[in-house]
Simulated scan of single mutants.
Amino acid sequence: MNRFCYLALMVAAGCNSPSTAPEASTLPAAPATKPAATVPADTAGPARTARRFVSWYATHQKELSNGLVLNDDGLDSTKFYSVDFPDTENWLRKVAGSGTVSPAYLDGWRAYFRSYDDTLRLHPQNDGPPAGFDHDLLMLSQEPDTKVADLQVGTVTVTSRQGNRAQVQARGPRHEAWQEGLNFEMSRSADGRWLIDRIDNGSDAF
């Protein structure tokens, strides 16, 4: 009797077991795997700073002093040129107000002014454009209006970024014989802002 019951239970268990594996369509779907987040290259900040600098210059160009040198008004031919340091500091305050330049950039100009004051003292000059001041100091051009207009409609490219330092090129449209440009060296400040440490002339003649 016990053996008969045991066989009956085995048969019942076999009937309740699935005879085939469930089709794939009946299996619960595996949870979707989220794609790994892509971290964009940090190029927006440096490029934005370069564009802000150019736009700020275009807006404030007429407010910037042209009187960085004393005695260059031609009123007294017996007086020689010299750097007007109070006016250069006023000029630097205006440039710092753009919010795009670092203390290193401003100190670079202070060294420039001291250097050319020494030049004017060692080589007295009272005629013609003063040495070191024969061009626009911010656009690094004798035709700043043309340059800033081109740069405003041109391209800005981050050519290098390593840690908290970046290099940026601003280029205007290419003309038949030349292309306006500026090259920027930047660093990121403690508060996260990208600021200009140095600018050199990136204009090319073809």
Rank of each mutant, 00 (worst) to 15 (best):
P40V: 14
P40I: 13
A41W: 04
A41Y: 08
T43V: 10
T43M: 04
A44P: 06
G45P: 02
G45H: 07
A47Y: 01
T49Y: 07
A50V: 08
F53Q: 03
F53D: 06
F53K: 02
Y57F: 12
A58T: 01
A58Q: 07
A58C: 03
T59Y: 15
T59F: 15
H60L: 02
Q61I: 15
K62A: 12
E63G: 07
E63L: 10
L64T: 13
L64F: 04
L64V: 12
N66K: 11
G67D: 15
L68S: 00
L68F: 03
L68E: 11
V69Q: 02
D72I: 04
D72H: 04
D72T: 05
G74M: 06
G74N: 00
T78H: 05
K79S: 07
F80L: 12
V83S: 04
P86L: 03
P86H: 00
T88L: 06
E89A: 09
N90P: 11
R93E: 13
R93N: 14
G97H: 04
G99N: 06
G99F: 09
T100V: 00
S102I: 01
A104M: 10
Y105A: 04
Y105M: 05
Y105W: 12
D107T: 14
R110T: 04
R110A: 11
A111T: 12
Y112G: 01
S115R: 07
Y116G: 00
D117E: 06
D117Y: 10
D118W: 14
D118Q: 15
T119Q: 15
L120D: 03
L120K: 07
R121Q: 09
H123A: 14
H123W: 15
H123M: 14
P124F: 08
Q125G: 01
Q125N: 05
N126P: 04
D127L: 12
D127F: 12
P130Q: 05
A131M: 13
A131T: 10
G132N: 00
F133G: 00
D134T: 08
D134S: 08
D134V: 01
D134L: 03
D134K: 01
H135R: 00
H135D: 00
L137I: 09
L138K: 06
L140Y: 08
L140G: 02
S141Q: 03
Q142L: 09
Q142S: 14
E143L: 15
P144A: 02
D145V: 12
K147Y: 11
V148S: 09
A149V: 11
